[in-house]
Each structure stands twice: as structure tokens, then as C-alpha cells.
Design a protein around this nucleic acid. Structure first.
Length: 245
DNA sequence: GGTATTTGACCATC
DNA sequence: GATGGTCAAATACC
């Protein structure tokens, strides 16, 4: 914005009303941006601060430190999960293909949810002691039923050795501390060679089928599909790259 | 027979 | 007591 400001202002007549208007608009933009940035950096602590002020008035300054400690302890105590921190959430069409191998260790029907929630831990949990887990739950659709979306929550950092994480069909993400790699930047051969075990739940059939996949590809066997993808990697014009979008 | 998944039980938290 | 996360025996698959 500063660069744009420096480019535009010299062009205008400094004594004209237009220049003053542009100057004012830039000032407004700068002010708004500063507010947004500081809000994002500090978070909205207004409620917490208001509670602390109330407590200070009621109990005096000397008891403030113990009160703050108590409040922080409460927040930590709210964590229901025993082991790991929440790493991030992803909404995706392919919840099982994220570049890691997972082993299912539980499934539950969650109250008020149409679909069950599945619990996975990293397949390297035994071999390498990796404590990463994730939960997968199908989102409730709008009724059209054309695209199935899944909420995937990740807990705990991977400490096992593995190539970069890939999220090929991510629709939206929140609070990610792990980088999301644009699937266009990852090779399709990586896509094929990731040995993600199959899912037995009937709800997950056709999980890796792209909604608008060309008819000519839908009847291919796994081996034929893999061959087709290999040919694509060799730059043969069999499959257009954009079908994976 | 080895490995992965399913599922009821158990436990922690609310 | 309800809910959600994990465990572990039973089962299925290769």
C-alpha cells in the first residue's frame, strides 16, 4: 500500500481536491489495516480483560496473580484429549490421503451427528513412537449428495520420517501449523505411490473418484488407473491435469 | 500366521 | 449420567 501511495500521489496535483481525497482514502486504508493486524496479532481479549478489571475492583490488586493463574489452569483443564495438542482442521473430499499412513483404532457414533467419527493414529506409532492422531467425520451435506466432505482434525505432531504432507482435495482449512502443499506442485507419481490402506466402511467407497472424472476413466481398474497416471507423468496427453482440480 | 479393522468396554471429562 | 477418546479382544483379510 505504501508503494502504491508513493506511485499515485506524485501524479496528482498536490493542491487539487482530488489529491486530498486520495490522501484521505489512503489514510483510512492504513488505519483499518493497522486495526485488523493488531487484532489478529493480539486476539480478542476484551472479555478476559473486562473480567480481570471486575475482579480487581472486587478483590483488590494483591489477589490478581493467583486469579490469573487459576483462570489459566481452568483453560488447560478444559482439554478433554489426554495426549496431544490440536494441530489443525481440514475439510476435504479425501480424508485418508494426506501423505501419511494411518491406522484406524476406533469408531463412534457421535450424538446429533448423522455420520460416525473414525479415529486414526499414525501407522508409525509402534515403530517410531509417533503420537500423531486424527479424527475423520463426514460432514452433513446440503442434501444434493453430489460431493461428500469430511471434517479431519489432526492432533499431535508427526515425529516419524515421512515425505511432505499433501492435501489434494482440501476445501478449507483452519489453524494449520503444518504446511499445506498445493497438489499441483506435488507429482502425481507421489499420489499413486502413497500406500494408503483401503477403507472398509461402505460410506467411503469411491473416495478417490473425482466428481467430474471423465466417463472413459471411471471403469478402469486400479492397475489401469495407475498406468494411466504414470503415462500422464510422462507428459502424454491422456489425462488433462485439470481433472484433479 | 501376520496384519489391519471392527466393536464393545473402559475411562476421563463435562 | 452423558459424551467422547482409547483400549483390546474378536474378527476379517491376504
Amino acid at each position: 500500500m505504501m508503494d502504491l501511495h508513493d506511485l499515485i500521489l506524485p501524479i496528482l496535483d498536490t493542491h487539487s481536491g482530488q489529491a486530498k481525497l486520495v490522501q484521505q482514502l489512503f489514510q483510512d486504508i492504513f488505519n483499518s489495516s493497522s486495526k485488523v493486524i493488531s487484532f489478529l496479532e493480539l486476539g480478542d481479549n476484551s472479555e478476559k480483560q473486562a473480567n480481570l478489571i471486575k475482579y480487581k475492583r472486587k478483590h483488590g490488586k494483591n489477589n490478581m496473580e493467583s486469579h490469573i493463574l487459576e483462570e489459566e489452569t481452568k483453560e488447560i483443564g478444559n482439554k478433554r484429549r489426554k495426549n496431544a495438542e490440536h494441530i489443525g482442521s481440514v475439510v476435504t473430499q479425501a480424508p485418508y490421503f494426506d501423505g501419511y499412513q494411518w491406522r484406524k483404532y476406533g469408531q463412534k457414533w457421535i450424538s446429533k451427528a448423522k455420520h460416525s467419527r473414525s479415529y486414526y493414529r499414525c501407522a508409525n506409532s509402534k515403530g517410531q513412537g509417533c503420537l500423531a492422531t486424527k479424527t475423520v467425520q463426514q460432514k452433513e451435506t446440503d442434501g444434493s449428495g453430489t460431493v461428500r466432505l469430511f471434517d479431519v482434525d489432526y492432533y499431535g505432531q508427526h515425529i516419524c520420517k515421512k515425505d511432505g504432507i499433501i492435501h489434494p482435495y482440501v476445501v478449507e482449512t483452519t489453524c494449520h501449523s503444518v504446511p499445506i502443499v498445493n497438489h499441483n506442485q506435488s507429482s502425481i507419481s507421489t499420489f499413486v505411490n502413497n500406500d494408503v490402506h483401503g477403507i472398509q466402511d461402505e460410506n467411503y467407497e469411491n473416495l478417490f473418484m473425482v466428481p467430474d472424472m471423465p466417463e472413459c476413466l471411471k471403469d478402469l481398474t486400479d492397475t489401469e488407473m495407475e498406468r494411466a497416471l504414470e503415462l500422464t507423468c510422462m507428459n502424454l496427453p491422456l489425462i488433462s491435469e485439470d481433472i484433479w482440480a
